[in-house]
């Protein structure tokens, strides 16, 4: 369904961040993309979704193919229309809008009004906690509720492939478990493929079929999820680190203010 072939990505024509990244997502699969802070995971997702172009980033080499079509030349709006939705890192709620309005924004291009209504109820079925908050201003929700809402928001676009960027960021372990359980359910019931970016390797490999590990803009390791789980390096560098590192990454977390926006 998705093939990323040896892509290189440069920001503002000078900062090279990805140096040949290849990965593949099969129909209906959950693929984990792991790595420490700054490895280039988010950049990889933005290259796929086209959001890179809103930050003056560019795929300078390699190709990205989705359903047999080369998509790396397209912008985020076209790519969203093809059936790829990115759930961005840091939740990015539309804070002054209500929960339901947040959901509706992602149904903007859909004509099937009845089904949109049904999908909203479907989202609330997956996330019953959020249902009771449907008319609340989303900015005041707790971190976990917001994370649930933005995953649900992504679902409203009915994507074939969802790119999920660090859904466990800053959340308590129990909540992470709950959200991961729902992600697994969504994947199974909606037959929706998921490319899951995480620093929390333990959580991600718990539900993934296959995984890639990135370092310094390259994929350094890949394999079936259970194989990676048993791999000593992964255990040492990513599982050990993820427990202690979750706090660290939370503090370091920041958005990159875009200097120049590119819009379609």
């Amino acid at each position: 369904m998705l093939q990323v072939n040896n892509i290189e990505v440069t920001y503002m024509n000078i900062i090279q961040v990805l140096r040949g990244v290849s990965l593949e997502v099969g129909d209906g699969k959950i693929i984990a993309l792991l790595g420490a802070n700054g490895a280039g995971k988010t950049t990889t997702l933005k290259a796929i979704s086209g959001l890179l172009k809103t930050e003056e980033g560019e795929v300078t080499d390699g190709s990205i193919v989705f359903d047999g079509k080369r998509i790396d030349r397209y912008g985020p709006v076209e790519i969203a229309a093809m059936g790829i939705t990115q759930v961005m890192e840091g939740r990015r709620v539309l804070g002054h809008l209500s929960v339901e309005e947040n959901l509706m924004v992602f149904a903007h291009n859909r004509k099937d009004r009845k089904e949109v209504k049904a999908d909203i109820e479907k989202v609330f079925e997956y996330f019953p906690k959020v249902k009771t908050l449907r008319r609340q201003t989303s900015g005041y929700l707790s971190g976990g509720e917001q994370q649930m809402m933005v995953i649900g928001r992504g679902l409203m676009a009915r994507p074939k492939l969802m790119l999920l960027d660090e859904p466990s960021l800053g959340l308590a372990p129990l909540l992470v478990q709950e959200i991961y359980e729902i992600i697994r359910r969504i994947n199974a019931e909606q037959k929706m493929a998921i490319l899951l970016v995480e620093q929390n390797a333990r959580a991600a490999l718990g539900i993934a079929d296959y995984g890639y590990v990135m370092e310094n803009g390259r994929v350094v390791l890949s394999g079936a999820a259970d194989m990676l789980r048993d791999n000593e390096d992964v255990q040492e560098f990513y599982m050990g680190l993820s427990a202690a590192g979750s706090k660290k990454s939370y503090r370091e977390f920041k958005h990159y203010r875009r200097k120049k926006r590119w819009v379609t």
Partner: peptide, 17 residues
């Protein structure tokens, strides 16, 4: 209203800003 909040999110929703 959504664009006023976060342009990038709006584009990721497939909306032409």
């Amino acid at each position: 209203m959504a664009t006023a909040e976060d342009e990038q999110v709006v584009q990721s929703a497939g909306i032409k800003v």
